[in-house]
Nucleic acid binder design. Structure first.
Lengths: 112, 112
DNA sequence: GCCATAATACACCAAATGGTGTACTATAGA
DNA sequence: TCTATAGTACACCATTTGGTGTATTATGGC
């Protein structure tokens, strides 16, 4: 039975809350990779990588299809869109971001 | 000693991974509120709300200043900007989303 | 069949989270 | 001062996570 993080967006935000899992997504955003490929240089044990990948899979941020011994991992952007939608819906936040953009454009137009 | 979630953005994404904490932020985005105000109707015990608020505070998503017995909670958008920046940096994702965002901004500017 | 490799499964542990209940601190108001 | 209220602190528990090491499954190449 699953007790915590019942909503899909809970899973999404939680999956993003670890630097190794974000690094995996960054690599997958460039194209499909095997488990060994996305693991390279991250300093994680194979067992721990399996767990990270399961958390990303549970969040529907990646899917996989097996080719022989290899698992080809595929990035799925949909949950990320939903996460971003939640953030964007905070208009007060968005407006403060808009002001910064406006100021940037203003400075740009004055050649600063 | 703190073992997990050392990076600020880890704290941010983790803080967003619970529906009650997101509900608190949604209320605070409308203006400063007391603890009782943001807790109303969420079905959480006072103790648990204290913990949720500490997680949001640790993520720098809220600050507080005390007025008599009341804690005025204040929404801080900066970590949310950083979280959004991380998502945006995934160009593959961003391109698929760009059209929708553009339409959203257009609607916003027309007061819809 | 035999061996190497890709990846997961399982057992184990420390630490953090989600949640409850009770006690405590601080302040407002009568 | 007495009492009610706002909010936190603390103790306690089950579950999950982060992490390690070892075993197992599956496939490919010889």
């Amino acid at each position: 039975m699953v007790y915590y993080r019942e909503q899909p967006i809970d899973q999404t935000f939680f999956a993003l809350a670890h630097p190794v899992r974000r690094a995996v997504l960054e690599r997958l955003a460039e194209g499909d990779r095997t488990v060994a490929d996305v693991s390279a240089g991250l300093g994680e044990s194979p067992s721990q990588m399996t767990k990270h990948l399961q958390i990303l899979e549970r969040a529907a941020l990646l899917t996989r299809h097996k080719v022989g011994r290899f698992h080809q991992l595929h990035f799925e952007p949909k949950p990320l869109e939903d996460a971003m939608d939640w953030i964007i819906r905070h208009r007060q936040f968005w407006e403060s971001k808009f002001d910064a953009l406006e100021a940037y454009l203003h400075d740009l137009s004055e050649g600063k």
